[in-house]
Design a protein around this nucleic acid. Structure first.
Lengths: 336, 336
DNA sequence: ATGAAAGCGCTAACAT
DNA sequence: ATGTTAGCGCTTTCAT
């Protein structure tokens, strides 16, 4: 900036005024300064600028995802990026792989860079460590799951109603033995979805058979094996509800391996890529990561602009997409 | 930091020494300082620190992707994140949607934050605007395609050999009428892949039929329609090479719609999710985004550490995965 | 309308 | 081993 001032033959402050589009600069000098700026290919240092600026913002937010490479996370990421871009804010993204420690580390790194706000898909089971940060003015929004032991905004899918709808869809097709496949019960969404399943089954007055419940499944292979076991059991399920996308993929593989993909119904929570070209096409309860991301970003920016109203917990609707696999009716042979 | 010094009852510099793990602090004072730090929940401001530090790095890199939400980009992103994390570097990510202007804007925003390096999946056709930046010491690596009019490192898939291999695979199965589906020829990778196709066809001494070449296809729908047309033509292709993942998905849909998925061979460039559960499973030439990302990051960090050797252009091998769709042999009925 | 001086949080260079 | 002073690139405050 000093170089620009020297080249333009003006004072430092005049350059600063031009750069910040502040009033009080004569058109003549402004032109000179602008010429010098482009001649030197000058760019103001946002960090230095915000350092001095009282209550200055770094125009930067941090994003803690489960994994930047998974489809749900990255769709979220994109929606948030778009909101941020409209406000000239840049986003740091990081993956924590469901590891609470990594979550803390990432948030710490964000703090070191003085981000104005943080959006977190939480992994840890205790977020009290963020209390000070929140009080100090960093905006904070939790996505997909609420914060644990911290009063903060959150945005999540309607897990319970989505699960209930999936199970009711299978019940309506005549199924009575419906298996539930889920991730670790310690994960909030996994638990909510199981709760939805349980509610729907209870409401239908069906005997709750816990041998049909398989949880703690961490990837598609685990799901595939669990389903293979279920299908080999004496009284196998006629329908399967896989409550997470990787588990659904495992389900597709397992049914195909057993050549039962046209006899056993399958419905998944969260849409999967190419779910419509598989044979049969996969019925799912689809989340709306774009809407979730947008809502989270809008909430965050509102907080960054000074909104101090009580924390809100937004619930984003899900949508059942019937494509074929969830509409298969129970057959005598499949359960014998 | 002043607060910490005051609470610990020591000088500012002592705190600085402790924070930076510099030698020359007595254990007694160090303990006091550490206590004060955790009591105040203090975190050093990396930006301020690097501002003063001579030749200081912000420990930050920028990443320009086509779209953070697409599978190739996000796999790249993750690999780069992992390399960066090992060096305690945070990454800014942004999408430019093949828009050269947006690419420039993003890079400008990165500059404003004084990132130490930038990894770009290039969209624009002229990168001379980065010359000054590069000379000023910002590390720069191009991914997926080389820089245009700029001498900089690049990492890309082996597009030509991959395409050649795909076509030769189809030739080996007996095909003589092989269609090529591609994106805009102005996109470097699209052009390279067409070149590979052309080479392989020429080498096989087959008549080059330009009616089998469809380029400028921007999404799966365009691909689907183009293929429907090709199949409806008097002398339709017996095999199809879709040179990009979205086009492959369009190909799957088109063949399924025409009920020809078991008669017309299909092979795609770049793997697709669930490519193995579709019926028939889709043969592809798979890229290795992880390897590309890792290589790009390692290159970038080497530059950031001061390596000034001539620019290198790394080529990452691709791998043909035969899953079924590419092994279908030509049938009389399909070509009549 | 313009600029000089002070200071943001921190580290370099130099004391003590 | 510890502290003091100057200054990174910028904005603030206060002159002129």
């Amino acid at each position: 900036m000093l170089d620009v001032a020297a080249l333009a033959g003006v004072g430092l402050k005049t350059v600063s005024r031009v750069v910040n589009a502040e009033p009080g600069v004569s058109p003549a000098l402004e032109a000179k300064v602008k010429r010098a700026i482009s001649q030197l290919n000058y760019r103001r240092d946002v960090n230095a600028s915000m350092l001095r600026r009282l209550g200055g913002k770094t125009q930067t937010i941090g994003l803690v995802l489960e994994d930047v490479a998974n489809p749900f996370s990255s769709a979220l990421h994109r929606a948030i990026e778009d909101s941020a871009r409209a406000r000239n804010v840049l986003v740091f993204a990081g993956s924590c792989d469901e590891d609470g420690l990594r979550e803390r580390e990432l948030i710490g790194s964000f703090r070191d860079r003085r981000v104005d706000g943080i959006i977190v898909v939480p992994a840890s089971s205790d977020h009290t460590f963020l209390y000070e940060e929140q009080r100090a003015g960093t905006a904070l929004v939790f996505v997909d799951r609420p914060a644990a032991h911290l009063d903060a905004d959150s945005v999540a899918s309607d897990n319970i109603n989505g699960s209930t709808a999936a199970v009711e869809h299978l019940l309506a097709a005549g199924h009575r033995r419906i298996a539930f496949l889920g991730d670790l019960p310690s994960i909030w969404t996994a638990d909510e979805r199981l709760r939805g399943y349980t509610q729907a089954v209870a409401q239908a007055g069906i005997h709750y058979d816990e041998t049909l419940i398989r949880t703690g499944l961490r990837d598609s292979d685990a799901s595939m094996h669990a389903i293979a076991e279920l299908l080999a059991a004496p009284d196998p399920p006629t329908a399967i509800f896989t409550s997470q996308n990787l588990l659904t993929i495992g389900g597709i593989r397992a049914l195909k391996a057993a050549a039962l993909q046209h006899r056993v119904a399958l419905i998944g929570f969260d849409d999967i890529p190419l779910g419509d070209v598989v044979e049969p096409a996969i019925s799912v309860v689809a989340q709306d990561p774009q809407a979730i991301g947008r809502a989270a970003a809008e909430l965050l920016f509102r907080r960054m602009e000074g909104d101090t109203s009580p924390a809100v917990h937004q619930v984003v609707p899900v949508r059942l997409i019937a494509r074929g696999s969830g509409e298969i009716e129970p057959t005598a042979s499949a359960s014998s």
